[in-house]
Amino acid sequence: MSATNECILKAACKLGRNILENGGEIYRVEETINFFLEAYGIFDAQIFAIPATIIVTIEEDGKPMTMVERVKGSSINLDKLSKFNDLSRRACRDKLPVESVMQEIEKIRSEKPYSFFMSLMSFGFTAFFFCLFWKGDLRDALVAFVCGLSTKYCLEFMSRGKTNIFFSNAVSSAVIAYIAILCVNLGLAHHYDKIIIGAIMSLVPGVAITNIMRDIIAGDVITGTTKLAEVLLTALAIAVGIALAMSTVIFFGGGL
């Protein structure tokens, strides 16, 4: 074995961290680290992962060695997730040298996500199609498209100001609701409810909802409850944003 245990531990932690950051489930993170360490000849590793931290302890000549990775916030990037997953599989199967694994991790990390324009268009068209999906008509969908664009701008602006997720979701959904109500009152569209639903679909925590029970059934109750809190907070933020917009319109405009 050419690589030291330290390097192997470091590579395993980085791999797990990246899978966690890009939207992987906890059991996937723990299994990846475990398989990776076993493939490189380190057995009986103690691995603990929750959405905010990964702790791995291995033993070297009877002495414990621990590494902690603090994960702050995650952005879902399924492309990178699938690449890291693939990398860990390849590394375990072909016993790639640890240095080249580290290099590949850095390479995948530095890959650019979709450009701002593409992302803007995805937000717009997501709102467009979801509005049609929730039985809005074509004019509603066009207004929803504009709402989707405004969502992306809001989120971008908020993330530059480093505000928390709760606040940025609340502000984005408030802006959506204002635009929708304004356009309906101007006669550009018919159903403000359909527009708002279509546009908030990109904010609703769908990933967390699907992963909660999977985590709990896999035995990660801490993660499950953390994510449950996240889902409730996000849903609450969206509801508060729209409620704020609606009640100010009702209060100052005397009705919707």
Partner: peptide, 14 residues
Amino acid sequence: LSSLVFCGIFNVHD
């Protein structure tokens, strides 16, 4: 179609 365009938000490239 909505799932298709949502792939852009989640950064699926393939």
